[in-house]
């Protein structure tokens, strides 16, 4: 193999190496939120945590090998009503299990497209949600976008709090609904 051949091979292999690169990132707590929308027979409310931490690691060319971890302190949810937030911490056993953790075990990209801006699409992320002392496996639809080194993901999904062994807390004799809608907005800078 002469020098010219070697040089050309290196040039041609460079894009392959770039695409095969596994990128990792740490969640940016300033731009990441996890919110829940809960329902009582007489009113609804929404609480948001701005203390989301976690990591994401994946290769844009083969996102099925991606891994995502997310952690949120239970006490960080703010609904604008201290008394209600206090009650929710009690209800979800927040003193014994102070952190909600989601750890992915499988990622299936159902649509993953590359454009001039970067990559975007939808992943079905299967993993375990640790909450209130119980781990429940769930598959979440996550819309993912990668623009340069900026990673963003959004997902909206319902959970059943009784599936986590939580007795729905009640106000004045009426219990809140079992189903709670979760909205996750995650942002990370990739390396």
């Amino acid at each position: 193999m002469n020098v010219r051949t070697l040089l050309l091979s290196v040039l041609l292999l460079a894009p392959v190496a770039a695409h095969a690169q596994r990128m990792t990132g740490t969640m940016d707590s300033r731009r990441s939120t996890l919110a829940y929308a809960a329902h009582h027979p007489t009113h609804d409310w929404r609480a948001t945590s701005r203390s989301v931490t976690g990591t994401v690691a994946f290769d844009p060319a083969t996102p099925s090998g991606a891994s995502v971890t997310m952690r949120v302190p239970v006490e960080s949810f703010d609904s604008g009503n201290d008394s209600r937030d206090d009650h929710m911490i009690d209800a979800v056993k927040g003193d014994d299990f102070p952190t909600i953790v989601f750890t992915s075990s499988r990622v299936v990209p159902t649509a993953w497209t590359r454009s001039a801006d970067g990559w975007s699409g939808v992943w079905q992320v299967t993993g375990g949600m640790q909450f209130a002392g119980r781990t429940v496996e769930m598959t979440l639809p996550v819309r993912v976008a990668v623009r340069g080194t900026s990673f963003s993901a959004t997902s909206q999904f319902p959970i059943s709090i009784t599936a986590f062994g939580i007795r729905p807390p009640s106000l004045l004799g009426l219990a809140m609904r079992d189903n709670v809608e979760i909205t996750a907005t995650l942002a990370a800078t990739l390396r």
Binding site: A111, S120, V122, V136, E137, T139
Partner: peptide, 20 residues
Amino acid sequence: APDVLALPDPSALGRMGDAV
């Protein structure tokens, strides 16, 4: 969502409440 969206069979993805 993009037009190419095609979702996997939910039964193949596991169900909420399964041991993991």
